[in-house]
Design a protein around this nucleic acid. Structure first.
Lengths: 190, 190
DNA sequence: CGCGACGTTGATTTGCCTCAACGATTGTGG
DNA sequence: CCACAATCGTTGAGGCAAATCAACGTCGCG
């Protein structure tokens, strides 16, 4: 069970056995039922979560009272509200389980301690953050340069199989259009 | 001149005199004329640039042969094509000076060395990256939840004075609409 | 069984783009 | 120093993609 995280880290940095144990000591397991919340508005995000099994969404409620999904997380992804985590401010977001989930939780304070004990772990999280940043820059590029239809086709190609795991209205929200429009897209050709 | 970077770092981590000197030794000065390029497609982004004075844009040319600006950088911001830098792949972007610029250049290889010598600098860049990620997540939120008009008003409120530094068509590109539309917005009420 | 959640489909509206023409300003070569 | 081109902004007319509003079908679950 812990091996999944361990393997993921090994893809980017090499830890000694001692260092692995330091990490393991700081990590907690957590399970969520479907539709259960990991974070709700008003609470400060307490740390980082690593998805062992399951699927979550990060979203907020916009001015028009619609849910706007900004991120999904599946197996071997980290998720947190970094805006809240970094600035120690109350979150404005929900993080919710779409499926039953098994997670690892790394509390923010433990993480800072860890970085001093094991600088290589800071390197690992630095790389994760760079990847996340690059991904969101790419996403901004796609938003501005592709039509909604192109973006949908592109997403399906990029994450085949994922569409079966989430309701269509969530996918529509993530892609930035209405469920009705997505339904029409699928009717055209699929 | 170097003090500007030094002060910026001090806002996040505290360096000893020795550590500051290690950093200074790795950094190069660079100046750009207006419209000069810092990076062009096909070249691997060689490192990070810190803007001492001036203003730059990062953009790429999309399928419809329009320039799509994804980032601006002004005084005390870092800029680079992280997609290229992180994956060591040829860039698909241009980074161009909008005004005459004074920059500091931190080559990628020097940066990795520095991180080993001075872990606190890795912490600093980790924080920068987190901030950049949060900013781009917020931007995605704005794109999906505000009309083009609202986004323009919001941007002007957030960076008053900046609109005088860049041509309108660049601002329109960054905000994701046409120069004509921006012109109409300004005509309405300003 | 009946209710709520989710998806589909049709009719209408609208925000923004496209195409096009025209000023104003800046820059450049003769 | 002027003439001309290039760049940038403005304005008008027409078109289209996607939203909105609304009704209906279907599945799963208490």
């Amino acid at each position: 069970m812990y091996t999944q995280l361990s393997e993921h880290i090994r893809r980017f940095v090499t830890l000694t056995v001692d260092e692995e144990q330091l990490l393991q000591a700081k990590i907690q397991s957590k399970t969520l039922k479907k539709k259960e919340f990991l974070l709700q508005p008003g609470k400060v995000c307490p740390g980082n979560y690593f998805v062992v099994k399951g699927c979550l969404r990060l979203y907020f409620v916009n001015d028009k009272l619609n849910e706007q999904i900004t991120q999904f997380a599946i197996e071997s992804w980290w998720i947190a509200d970094y805006d809240s985590l970094l600035n120690k401010q109350p979150s404005q977001c929900y993080i919710q389980a779409i499926e039953p989930c098994e997670l690892f939780f790394l509390p923010a304070m433990h993480q800072t301690e860890l970085f001093e004990q094991v600088p290589k772990l800071q390197t690992y999280f630095y790389i994760m953050m760079q990847k996340a940043f690059v991904a969101s820059q790419r996403r901004i590029g796609f938003i501005f340069n592709q039509s909604d239809e192109e973006r949908y086709r592109h997403f399906v190609k990029l994450f085949p199989g994922f569409i079966q795991r989430v309701p269509q209205y969530m996918l529509a929200s993530y892609l930035g259009f209405t469920p009705q429009f997505l339904s029409r897209l699928r009717a055209k050709k699929d």
